[in-house]
Nucleic acid binder design. Structure first.
Lengths: 98, 98
DNA sequence: CTGCTAATTAGCAAAAGTGCTAAATTGAGT
DNA sequence: ACTCAATTTAGCACTTTTGCTAATTAGCAG
């Protein structure tokens, strides 16, 4: 579960998408317009982010509004911070069975 | 540059390695013993981490001592946190040209 | 229902990532 | 120089990821 998040974050385009989304929700189309990749490619990046639950999608009639899922992003940041905390006994990367 | 870091973090084994290393420096061999992947595979994971500068390697005679590079890990965590900060005007994922 | 726009899914080819075994390297000891 | 142990590099097979174009679905307007 943590894994899909980090995998989603591993592509620069997807981090860029999150950076854009950070400033507020955005329509898929507007998002796509900001990148010079093809529309379907953008759509797939969004799907990966959605799968990792880093974003949520909400239909607005014919368009789809994307939004960052702050808590998942927070968890990821926390996991990284846990990786550098001075020894406090428990394993920060231990993850519950999938 | 940020990119190689997130890519390095995208593999669970590599995050585990960092989790082990968090508790203190460790010899490559000891590290390898903790996982059930082959030795060369572990070696490659370490190479990826080193390439991303998430760890540093230091020869100790015939063995090699690995150590987390805290600052790079910190930067990554900070980048993620930047992705969820309330709008403060600048783009947290903007990265200098490669 | 037809047509239009927004967005996703299918299918494919190219590139990158993973993990293995076998071979090479590096340093220490003799 | 020869040998042993620790580690990395080479080479290969296999899977995943990426990005494209073409085709499809979804919702709305007429």
């Amino acid at each position: 579960m943590q894994n899909s998040v980090f995998k989603a974050l591993s592509h620069p385009a997807r981090r860029q998408i999150l950076a854009l989304l950070r400033k507020g929700p955005r329509l898929a189309g507007d998002l796509a317009a900001e990148f010079d990749t093809s529309w379907p490619t953008m759509s797939r990046h969004l799907a990966v982010l959605k799968e990792a639950e880093l974003v949520t999608a909400e239909r607005q009639g014919t368009q789809i509004l994307y939004r960052v899922n702050t808590s998942v992003l927070e968890d990821a940041a926390t996991a990284l911070l846990g990786l550098l905390g001075r020894d406090n006994g428990d394993d920060p990367m231990k993850e519950a069975a999938e």
